[in-house]
């Protein structure tokens, strides 16, 4: 397995593990800071995927053999396999939109430096009930997303470079 691919696999795994860890952190501990291990796993995992794919794009564009370049698609003059572009775009969106959200959700008013007191831990405990409405919505979402996923997978099986 080429090393950029290994990095991307590990990074994606880190994002998934970090997300689960973060959810359980909120459910058990409460308010967190930017520097929890769960957040670091998410952000560093996302960053690793984007950077390794970026390396693939640079290497293929400027130092790729003709055979290697033939297996790529063109993106603003650069060349890389489609999967690398998906990883680069996804990683950029992932990091940039979180920065934007910090402003829209007034995270700058909450100041991560503020020491989370006992009350804040309690206030932020996430404990929404799971009722019939939530069950119906999640069933609908599950069906729709499964359909979309299957269609997406069908298309992906045709991707050749």
């Amino acid at each position: 397995m080429p090393w950029p691919l290994a990095v991307a696999v590990l990074g994606s795994a880190a994002v998934v593990v970090g997300l689960l860890w973060d959810i359980s952190w909120h459910a058990s501990i409460g308010r967190d800071s930017f520097w929890t291990p769960a957040h670091l796993a998410i952000y560093l995992g996302g960053l690793a995927c984007g950077l390794s794919a970026g390396w693939v794009a640079l290497a293929t564009t400027f130092a790729g053999t003709p055979e290697r370049r033939a297996e790529t698609v063109c993106f603003w003059g650069f060349r890389a396999p489609l999967g690398a572009w998906v990883a680069i775009w996804g990683s950029s969106e992932f990091l940039l939109s979180r920065y934007a959200r910090n402003w829209f959700f007034a995270a700058d008013q909450w100041t991560y430096r503020a020491r989370p007191g006992a009350w804040r831990h309690r206030y932020w405990l996430d404990g929404d009930g799971f009722g019939p409405r939530a069950a119906a919505v999640s069933l609908l979402l599950a069906v729709v997303s499964a359909r979309l996923g299957l269609a997406w997978g069908g298309w992906l099986s045709r991707v050749r470079r």
Binding site: E71, C74, V159, R160
Partner: peptide
């Protein structure tokens, strides 16, 4: 660009 590249080129054989 990503969608365009995917539909236009990615399903073609290399080269």
């Amino acid at each position: 660009t990503l969608v365009g590249a995917g539909v236009r080129e990615s399903v073609l054989a290399p080269g």
